[in-house]
């Protein structure tokens, strides 16, 4: 037992030695998000260690990495979802269109209206399909009349590719839909607020391949109007939908670059080991 532990420990040191500066192209000319030297602590746990990167407008950025590498934590930094966790502390310079989002003047409610989020497990409210989509616009007072609200709901559902399937049952509960439909309902709910950026935390991990393909197609269409950051466990999915890919390991950004480059010829051994399914 003791020797095993020792072995594990020495192994870890090895990996940490391999972790140096981020390699690849993590910065872009145009920036929607500009993050510099971001650190996240959960109590004493240094969950994200000195990460810097840019996210360009209208691009899909995929975050990949083994479980517990901090990619979901990092995603939640972008709309301050970590605020709800007491022991979580974020430091560094994080700018959305040049504005520091962790500034005291930045309201998290406003930020989350600008940076929407879709979660791993489809989580529609136990309300009707209509009310699910209408909730955000109502909350922020985006519609001045019922007709306008109807319009927002229908457009959002249409953009999420769900309108045809649910047109005749808008007043039925959203929880009665299939998993894939529920996730598209959640996407519709998010885009009903017209955010600038959409964060997706493994949006297809609970779905079957067909539903996944539909979601992926949707992400591709949404790219025209939104900037998307997506965490995914499926490397094939990252390869299919993203323009740039970032590989996280033990809370560090190991490598970031154009997706084709990451998947055919990554620069870092750790990235290579991860995407080719080797012991790392």
């Amino acid at each position: 037992m003791a020797t095993e532990n020792a072995e594990e420990k020495s192994n870890k040191v090895d990996i940490e030695q391999q972790l140096g500066e981020t390699v690849g192209e993590q910065f872009t000319d145009e920036q929607k998000f500009a993050l510099r030297n971001v650190d996240v602590y959960y109590g004493d746990n240094h969950a994200i260690q000195d990460i810097s990167m840019d996210i360009a407008p209208n691009e899909v950025v995929a975050f990949i990495g083994p479980s517990g590498c901090g990619k979901s934590t990092f995603l939640r930094v972008l709309n301050r979802m970590n605020d709800t966790i007491d022991i979580c502390r974020v430091s560094g310079d994080i700018r959305l269109d040049g504005e520091d989002i962790y500034d005291k003047k930045m309201d998290p409610v406003l930020l989350r209206a600008r940076v929407g989020m879709v979660f791993q497990k489809p989580n529609p409210f136990p309300k009707s399909i209509y009310d699910n989509v209408a909730y955000g616009p109502k909350l922020h007072g985006l519609a001045s009349s019922r007709a306008e609200l109807d319009d927002i709901v229908r457009t959002s559902l249409k953009r999420a590719g769900l309108l045809k399937e649910v047109e005749n049952r808008l007043d039925e509960p959203g929880t009665g839909l299939s998993g894939g439909q529920q996730q598209r309902l959640c996407i519709a709910r998010t885009i009903a607020v017209s955010p600038e950026v959409i964060l997706m935390d493994e949006p297809a991990s609970a779905l079957d391949p067909i539903a996944t393909a539909i979601i992926e197609e949707l992400i591709d269409e949404l790219r025209e109007n939104y900037t998307i950051a997506i965490v995914t466990h499926s490397m094939q999915q990252a390869a299919r939908i993203s323009q740039r890919t970032a590989y996280f390991h033990l809370g560090k950004l190991v490598e970031m670059g154009p997706t084709e480059k990451i998947f055919t010829n990554p620069d870092h051994t750790l990235t290579e080991n991860y995407i080719t399914g080797r012991f790392g």
Binding site: M81, V109, R112, G116, M117, F119, N123, F125, R189
Partner: peptide, 15 residues
């Protein structure tokens, strides 16, 4: 379920 809380917070609802 916390997912309901997350959904509302993610849409910009206050606490």
């Amino acid at each position: 379920p916390p997912s309901i809380r997350e959904a509302a917070l993610g849409l910009g609802a206050s606490k």
